[in-house]
Structure formats: structure tokens, C-alpha cells
Write a protein that binds this DNA or RNA. Structure first.
Ligand SMILES: [Zn+2]
Ligand SMILES: [Zn+2]
Ligand SMILES: [Zn+2]
Ligand SMILES: [Zn+2]
Lengths: 142, 142
DNA sequence: ATCGCACACGTTATACCATCACGCAATAAT
DNA sequence: ATTATTGCGTGATGGTATAACGTGTGCGAT
């Protein structure tokens, strides 16, 4: 195999991973695995497992986040920092229930407080889910 | 109908609601809707919808929480016995990936910080999901 | 009384989400 | 060459959630 699908400064993605990531990057709302599959049929993807395998890797790379309250996925869109280091464990999401937009943010104090609680209780956190559901500013105005 | 909205009123439960709530109270781990269904076959419940309808009500009453990262449900078990009022919107959960135990807790500062972010961004939150996945103290020791 | 309405209930069918189990191919190490 | 690792493709299966329809009961208004 020669080609790499996109000249971006990311870890080397396989063809399937690049296709799935492209779908998520181009979307304006979270996509379910099956929606991604539908969009990629013309590119030769046919089975859910092809999507889920790619998503697993992309999540592991930190390029994609899974939204637990939606059973759906978004491309990482950190406010400032990039896809490495501390920010991974602490990302939070504000999901608009009207327009499906997702704002990704990090509140250091929130993560701090949760870590502090865990330490006190002897709990060893491996991952943290923080998701706000509600109305974004634009939809509130309308 | 009970006009009682929030404070220490355990609304009258219908038969199905009582059965589902009983199953959750008696469990030591979160239960999926279908697991509850299996447990209640002998009581005459036969279809998923009967479970989901009861769960919707119980969640609305604040007697049960849905764990988004597990697609499962637990009976409310607030730490200090404040089983009503303010604490509902801000509950957080620490879920052990080894023994499936769930600790429910509230960190006022966490809720505060998230509300503060929302206010700044013009986001109007309707509900908040905070779930920690990891190892509880007992399982860490073992 | 009986009509209308709200609400819980029961059932079937279907849609949507996720993984298992198998086998094959390409690559890297021994 | 043999083995280990990783990604890929496919069919089958299992788990989660709702749509659509119809029934029955309680209760206030007529
Ligand atoms: Zn991110
Ligand atoms: Zn919106
Ligand atoms: Zn609670
Ligand atoms: Zn444990």
C-alpha cells in the first residue's frame, strides 16, 4: 500500500480509519456508527464491525470522542490544546437537544474536584464522562 | 394524581412501577431493562415496553437513575439520605469496572463549576451526566 | 347514567446499537 | 520458514429502545 489518504499531521491512519475520521470531521453533529456506515457504503464499507473497529482506534488515538448519552461519536474539537496529554481524561461536552451541536470544553477545576473525591474514597478512575444536555445559546435565542 | 412535585413525597407507584423499583432496590449492581424483565417474568411482565415505561416514571420521580455509560439503571442512593430536592440534578456516579458497584455522590463545587461554564457560554442545561469508571477501593486492594 | 378524557397497561413488530467467531492477508521479528 | 501481530471482510447473533395499535379503568362534566 502506498497511499495515505490525507496529508494531515496525524498518526498514520489506515484506510478505514481515515474514512471514518473524515466522516466525523465533516459532520456538524455527532454521528452514530450506523450513520457513518451509511455514508461510507460507496467507499466499500459494508459491515458495522468495520466502523466500530476504526472508531475504537480513533478513540484510543484521542482523535474522536464517544458521547455516552447519545451512543454517538464526534471528532475531537478541543478549544485550544491539541489531541494529547492531560486534556484527554477531562473533556466535557455540552450537547444541544434542539440542533445537536456539541461544544467540547475542559474545566480544570471540575476534573480536580472529581480526582479529589476519588482520592478520598480510594477510587481509581480510568475514565470520566461529563455531558451536559440542554439548549445552546443560538437555540435559546430562537 | 399527586400534585406533589419535589419534596419528600414518594408518589404512589403503580404495580409495574413497584415491581421494577423493587428489583432495582434489591440489586447490588445496575440492572439493564432486559435483566429486570427477566427477573419479573414470573410476576407477569412480558415486554420491554412495560419495563421502559415504569423506568421513565421512576426516573422522573427521582427514585431511579439511569447510568448512560452502561445503559443501565440503579435505585437512587444518595449519600446523606437527602433523597429529595436539590441533589437530583447534580448526582455523580463512580462505577467499578471489576465488581459493578456504584457509589452515588454529589460534589457541590463540580456542579457549581459546570453551571458557571454554562452561564458564560449561554448554554441552558436540562440535565447533567457525571460518571467515573474505574476501580473501587475494595477491588484495588484485591 | 354516559360521555369524554387522561392515563396506565399489554402485545406485536421493528429499528437501532454492538459484538462474536471465523478466516484471510500483509508485516515484522526470530 | 515459522511465528506473532495487526488490520480486514463477512455472516450471524445478541442487547437496547421505540412505534403503533388496541384495551381497560377512574373520574369529572353533562
Ligand atoms: Zn477532545
Ligand atoms: Zn442548539
Ligand atoms: Zn440519587
Ligand atoms: Zn469493585
Amino acid at each position: 500500500m502506498s497511499a495515505d489518504a490525507a496529508p494531515h499531521a496525524k498518526p498514520d491512519l489506515t484506510r478505514n480509519q481515515a474514512l471514518v475520521f473524515g466522516a466525523l470531521e465533516g459532520a456538524e453533529a455527532p454521528l452514530s456508527a450506523y450513520t457513518i456506515l451509511d455514508q461510507l457504503r460507496d467507499d466499500g464499507l459494508r459491515a458495522p464491525l468495520q466502523i466500530y473497529r476504526a472508531l475504537d482506534k480513533l478513540v484510543a488515538f484521542g482523535l474522536v470522542h464517544r458521547l455516552e448519552s447519545l451512543n454517538a461519536f464526534v471528532a475531537c474539537n478541543h478549544p485550544a490544546g491539541e489531541a494529547d496529554g492531560e486534556s484527554h481524561g477531562t473533556a466535557a461536552f455540552a450537547i444541544c437537544e434542539n440542533c445537536d451541536s456539541v461544544a467540547e470544553f475542559t474545566e480544570q477545576d471540575v476534573a480536580e474536584r472529581l480526582r479529589s473525591w476519588a482520592k478520598t474514597e480510594g477510587f481509581e478512575p480510568h475514565s470520566t464522562v461529563i455531558e451536559l444536555r440542554g439548549l445552546c445559546e443560538a437555540c435559546r435565542a430562537a
